[in-house]
Design a binder for these strands. Structure first.
Length: 695
DNA sequence: ATAGGGTTAG
C-alpha cells in the first residue's frame, strides 16, 4: 500500500537522497513574500508552484493556511505539493498539519490519498481519525466511515463531538437505526448530549429512520435549537408525511426568533403544497418577504410550486415574473405547474421559451401530456425529446412506458425495455414497475408474468397494485381477489389497492368480500379518500345494498359533491328515484353544495318516476336558490321530462331557452305532439324540422 | 491551530 501516492514517493526519495536539505536559498524571505502576495491575490496555484523554490521549511501556520485553501478550492494537485514540501522539511511533521492534509484530500474526494497518508502517519491523534472518518462520510462512503469509527474505538482513541457528528450523518444515510441508538448512548455517556450540533444530528437520524416520535423527543431536549435544528425537524416531519406538524414547526421557528434557512422555507412550502394549504402558504410567503428572501431563486421556486399545486396559477405567475428569480429551476417549476394543472398550451409555450432545459424540464412537460392523457401530443413531444436529450433517466423511461402502455404499443414498449436493459436501469424498482405495468396493460400477460417473477424479492405495493389493475382490466375479477391475499404476504396495500379491489368485487357482485374489505380498511386505519369511497359506494350499490351505500356516503366530506352526484345517478339506475330525491334533500341538510351535474341527476330521477311537478320545482330552485347557470343538458333533461309525460304547456314555456334546440330535442317534441295533441307546438316544431331537412 | 449537523424542479 502507499506506493502510488505522490507524497510518499517523494518522501521515500528524500529519505535515501536528502539533497534538498543541503540546498540553500539566497533570499528565503523574498520567496515567502511572493508566495504570500499570490495568496493575497487568491492565486493558490501560483503560490504553490513557488513552494519548492524555497528549500527551507516554512512556518507551520503557512502550511495550515495552504491546506485550508486547497480544501476550499478542491485543488488536489496543490494539496499533494504542499504535503510533499511539509514532509520534506519536517521530520516528523506535526500531526495537526497532516490532519489538515487528510481533510484537504477528503474535500478533493481523493480518499485514496487520505487513506494512505493516514496509514503512514508516524503518530495519529483523534483529529486524524476524525479527518478520515469525515472524509469517508462526506465522500459517499458511509459504511466505511462507520467501520473506521469502530476501528477508532478498538484502538483506544476516544471519539469526540466531531466524530459523533460525522458518524451520525452516516447512520442517517444508511438508515442504521440500531447503530445510531448505540452511538446516542455513548454520546450521553461522554456528556455531549447538550451539544446542539450532535443533538440536531440525532434528530436527523431518528427522523430519517422513520422514528419521528424519537426525533421530536430529541428535538425537545435541545436547549436552544438553532436554524439547522429547526430545519431538520421541519424537513423530517415533511418526509414522514406529517405536513401539518412540518408547517407548525416552521411557524414555531419564527416564534422562537430564529431566522429560517432557505431550505426550511422550501420544506415548509412543500408541506403546504402537499396539504393544499394555500392560506398557510401565503403566510409563509409573508415571512419570505419579511426576511428578504423574495429574490432567492430557490425560495421563489418553492413558492411557485406551492401556488401551482394549490391551483393558484395567478400568484405563481406573479412570483415567477419578479425580477431576478428566473433560473432553470423556477422555469421548470412554472412549466411543471402549468403542465400538472392540465394547462398544456401555456406549459408548452413557456417550455419553448426556456433559455435552457434540463432533463427534468423535459420530463415535466411530458408528464403533463401523460397526466392529461393527451397521447398523440405526448408522442410528438417524445419525438422532439429524442432529438434533443441524451440523458434520459428513470423518470423519463417511466413516462415513455406510460405512453406505450396507454397506446397499447407493445413494439415501442419493447424498444424502451431494450434501452432500460442497455443503460442499466433494470435495477431501478420504479422503472421495473412501469415496465411490468406496460406489459400488463398491453395485454402481454406472459411477458408481464415474467417481469413480475423477476422482481421477486423487491416487489413493493406499487408492483402489486399494478398486478391487480392488469387483472381487473382483463376482467379476471376473481383473480384480483385471490392475488390480494398473496399480496398481503409480501407487502402492505394502500388506498389505490382498495379501489381496484372493490371494483372487482362490484363486477362480480361479491358483497361479502367487498364488505370484508371495507372492514379491513376501517380496522387498519386507512384513510378513505374520494376514490376509495366512490369504489365503496359502487360496490354496495351494485351488490344491491343501496341502504348501506347511503349510510357510507354520509361519512363523505361536504366538498365531495361528485360522490353525491354519482350516488344519485346510481339510485336512478336501480329505479329508486325516491331515494335519489331523498339523497338530494340530505345533501341540503348536511350542507353539501349541489352543482350542475347534481341537478342533471335529479332531473333524471324525476324522469324515471314521472315527477313532473317536482322536476319543475327543482328546475326553478336550481336557478333561483342555487344560482346555477342553466346548461343545454339541463334543458334536455326537462324537455325529456315534459315530452314523456305530456306536460305540453310547460314544454312550450321552456322552449324559450337561450339555446338552439337540437335535432333530437325537436324529434322528441314532434313525437310528443302526436301523443298529446298540441297544434301550435306541432306547427312550430314541424317548421323547424323541415328547415333542417332542406339544408 | 482545528474539525462537525441540514441540501430545495419531474
Amino acid at each position: 500500500m502507499g506506493v502510488n501516492s505522490g507524497a510518499s514517493a517523494i518522501k521515500n526519495f528524500l529519505q535515501i537522497n536528502p539533497i534538498a536539505q543541503n540546498l540553500k536559498s539566497t533570499k528565503p524571505n523574498s520567496t515567502i513574500n511572493t508566495i504570500l502576495s499570490h495568496l493575497e491575490a487568491g492565486c493558490l496555484k501560483k503560490a504553490v508552484s513557488l513552494l519548492f523554490s524555497s528549500p527551507f521549511p516554512f512556518d507551520l501556520p503557512l502550511y495550515g493556511r495552504l491546506f485550508q485553501l486547497c480544501s476550499a478550492s478542491r485543488a488536489i494537485v496543490e494539496a499533494r505539493k504542499v504535503e510533499s514540501h511539509l514532509i520534506s522539511y519536517y521530520d516528523p511533521p506535526p500531526t495537526f498539519l497532516l490532519n489538515r492534509a487528510i481533510e484537504a484530500y477528503g474535500k478533493c474526494r481523493c480518499l485514496q490519498d487520505a487513506r494512505e497518508l493516514f496509514d503512514e502517519m508516524p503518530h495519529r491523534d483523534g483529529g486524524s481519525w476524525n479527518a478520515l472518518i469525515t472524509a469517508y462520510a462526506k465522500g459517499g462512503f458511509p459504511s466505511e466511515a462507520l467501520g473506521l469509527y469502530l476501528d477508532m474505538n478498538r484502538s483506544g482513541v476516544s471519539p469526540s463531538e466531531v466524530t459523533f457528528a460525522s458518524v451520525l450523518g452516516s447512520c442517517g444515510v444508511l438508515l442504521e437505526l440500531g447503530f445510531a441508538r448505540v452511538v446516542h448512548g455513548f454520546v450521553v455517556k461522554l456528556g455531549y448530549g447538550g451539544n446542539v450540533i450532535i443533538a440536531s444530528a440525532l434528530v436527523d437520524v431518528y427522523g430519517k429512520c422513520d422514528e419521528i416520535v424519537d426525533a421530536r423527543r430529541m428535538f425537545d431536549e435541545i436547549d436552544r435549537p438553532n436554524a439547522v435544528s429547526w430545519n431538520v425537524i421541519v424537513r423530517r416531519y415533511l418526509e414522514v408525511g406529517d405536513e401539518r406538524q412540518s408547517v407548525f414547526m416552521f411557524f414555531q421557528t419564527i416564534r422562537a426568533g430564529v431566522r429560517p434557512l432557505t431550505f426550511t422555507f422550501s420544506s415548509a412550502l412543500v408541506a403546504c403544497s402537499n396539504r393544499q394549504a394555500v392560506l398557510e402558504g401565503v403566510q409563509i410567503h409573508g415571512v419570505v418577504i419579511k426576511y428578504r428572501h423574495e429574490d432567492d431563486e430557490k425560495v421563489a421556486t418553492s413558492l411557485i410550486d406551492m401556488y401551482m399545486k394549490c391551483n393558484d396559477v395567478v400568484s405563481a405567475r406573479k412570483v415567477f415574473d419578479q425580477p431576478g428569480v428566473k433560473d432553470l429551476l423556477s422555469w421548470t417549476s412554472m412549466v411543471s405547474g402549468y403542465a400538472m394543472a392540465g394547462r398544456l398550451k401555456e406549459a408548452q409555450e413557456l417550455f419553448d421559451k426556456m433559455p435552457e432545459r434540463s432533463i427534468i424540464s423535459w420530463n415535466a412537460m411530458l408528464a403533463g401530456y401523460v397526466r392529461s392523457g393527451q397521447w398523440e401530443e405526448a408522442q410528438s413531444f417524445i419525438f422532439k425529446m429524442c432529438l434533443n436529450i441524451y440523458d434520459a433517466d428513470g423518470v423519463t423511461l417511466n413516462l415513455l412506458l406510460n405512453v406505450s402502455a396507454a397506446l397499447s404499443d407493445i413494439e415501442y414498449g419493447r424498444q424502451i425495455h431494450a434501452y432500460i436493459y442497455r443503460h442499466g436501469f433494470e435495477s431501478v424498482i420504479y422503472v421495473k414497475n412501469a415496465l411490468f405495468d406496460m406489459y400488463g396493460k398491453c395485454g402481454a400477460l406472459r411477458r408481464a408474468r415474467i417481469c413480475f417473477h423477476n422482481m421477486s424479492g423487491q416487489r413493493d405495493t406499487i408492483s402489486w397494485n399494478s398486478l391487480l389493475n392488469s387483472l381487473a382490466q382483463h376482467q379476471m375479477n376473481v383473480d384480483v381477489i385471490t392475488m390480494f391475499r398473496e399480496m398481503q404476504k409480501e407487502t402492505t396495500p394502500n388506498e389505490y389497492t382498495f379501489s381496484t379491489l372493490l371494483a372487482a368485487c362490484a363486477n362480480i357482485f361479491a358483497y361479502s368480500q367487498g364488505k370484508q374489505i371495507h372492514g379491513f380498511m376501517i380496522r387498519n386505519g386507512y384513510k378513505i379518500d374520494v376514490v376509495s369511497l366512490d369504489a365503496l359506494l359502487e360496490m354496495y350499490s351494485k351488490c344491491g345494498y343501496l341502504e348501506y351505500a347511503l349510510k357510507v356516503i354520509k361519512t363523505a366530506k361536504p366538498g365531495d359533491t361528485i360522490l353525491w352526484n354519482s350516488m344519485i345517478i346510481r339510485c336512478c339506475h336501480h329505479g329508486k328515484a325516491r331515494e335519489a330525491l331523498a339523497l338530494f334533500d340530505l345533501m341540503k341538510e348536511i350542507g353539501v353544495k349541489p352543482d350542475n351535474v347534481t341537478f342533471q341527476a335529479v332531473f333524471n330521477a324525476c324522469l324515471c318516476e314521472g315527477f313532473v311537478d317536482e322536476g319543475k320545482r327543482y328546475f326553478d330552485a336550481m336557478i333561483n336558490d342555487y344560482g346555477i347557470t342553466v346548461k343545454l343538458e339541463h334543458y334536455e333533461c326537462m324537455i325529456n321530462l315534459y315530452t314523456r309525460y305530456g306536460a305540453m304547456k310547460e314544454l312550450g314555456k321552456i322552449l324559450k331557452m337561450p339555446f338552439k334546440p337540437t335535432v333530437s330535442m325537436l324529434t322528441r317534441i314532434f313525437d310528443a305532439c302526436k301523443v298529446y295533441p298540441s297544434p301550435r307546438l306541432a306547427m312550430w316544431v314541424a317548421k323547424k324540422l323541415n328547415k333542417l331537412n332542406q339544408n
